[in-house]
């Protein structure tokens, strides 16, 4: 049996918001260590890897591994009904047909209970080995979201170029070009505002702007985002959770 209680429903709301536009159906795999999701978008260009660790829950128990096949659009309709500050409890039997979603208001004696029908989902699982990356950038997630939104207005592609001194985000479209250059710096008072660039080898990669626009929907999960890049390889974009992470793996574009 699964019984997981969050101190606030806001974390699950943000997680669903962050992934629902990339994948529609996915299995939530529940183990004694927490909840994991691995799902690929329909075009197989973007992969989501989520870990909500046991410590993200106020109370958590999962005696046996349980798979919850969830339609995220339906789940989102229910999860939106709770207030962000409500306790959120997920309950499922060992071989469940549905999952119970319970919101409890902390001040009033109000308990809202919903049941979501589960689906039997076949899903491809991609084996991602630990990769060596040539460059790692950690920056404020809101800044990365703004750069993505701004440059996406010019072109379908977004180029990320990393040199020893800086990282350049660049787009080249029909009516014009744009780029944003960031240098590494340390903000002692607000560490999350810092920009860290670690580079072993220079990088020049091009990505589909619409996929990066989907990735930045994870912005509300974390103050900072870490971008890991390797030549001619998928990039990793990571938002850390209090215990766990939301990672996006994005295949690059290559010149013919």
């Amino acid at each position: 049996m699964l019984e997981g209680k969050f101190e606030e429903s806001s974390l699950m709301k943000k997680v669903v918001d962050a992934i629902k536009d990339s994948v529609k159906l996915c299995n939530f795999n529940c183990t004694e260590h927490g909840v994991t999701v691995q799902a690929v978008d329909d075009s197989r260009v973007l992969l989501i890897s989520l870990l909500i660790g046991e410590a993200s829950f106020e109370e958590y128990r999962c005696d046996r591994n349980i798979t919850l096949g969830i339609d995220l659009e339906s789940f989102n309709k229910i999860i939106k009904n709770g207030n962000s500050s409500d306790f959120l409890t997920l309950i499922a039997e060992d071989s469940p047909d549905n999952v119970l979603i319970i919101f409890e208001d902390k001040k009033k004696d109000r308990v809202s209970e919903y049941s979501l029908k589960l689906m039997d989902l076949d899903s491809d699982f991609l084996q991602i080995d630990d990769m060596e990356f040539d460059a790692t950038i950690t920056m404020p997630s809101s800044e990365f979201a703004k750069i993505t939104r701004d440059l996406k207005t010019l072109s379908e592609s977004l180029q990320i170029i990393v040199t020893k001194e800086n990282v350049k985000f660049s787009s080249d479209g029909d009516f014009g070009t744009g780029n944003v250059v960031l240098k590494g710096f340390v903000d002692m008072d607000k560490p999350d505002e810092s920009i860290k660039i670690d580079m072993a080898r220079p990088i020049n990669l091009t990505f589909g702007a619409k996929y990066i626009a989907d990735i930045v929907k994870g912005t509300s999960l974390s103050e900072s985002v870490t971008i890991k890049l390797a030549d001619k390889s998928p990039a990793l974009f990571e938002y850390k959770l209090p215990s766990g992470f939301l990672r996006f793996y994005l295949a690059p574009k290559f010149d013919e």
Binding site: S43, R44, V45, L47, L126, Q127, T206, G208, K253, F254
Partner: peptide, 14 residues
């Protein structure tokens, strides 16, 4: 125009 790659070109499906 650059061509979009598929993740399965990099990772194995299991």
């Amino acid at each position: 125009t650059p061509i979009q790659n598929d993740l399965t070109e990099f990772y194995n499906i299991i």
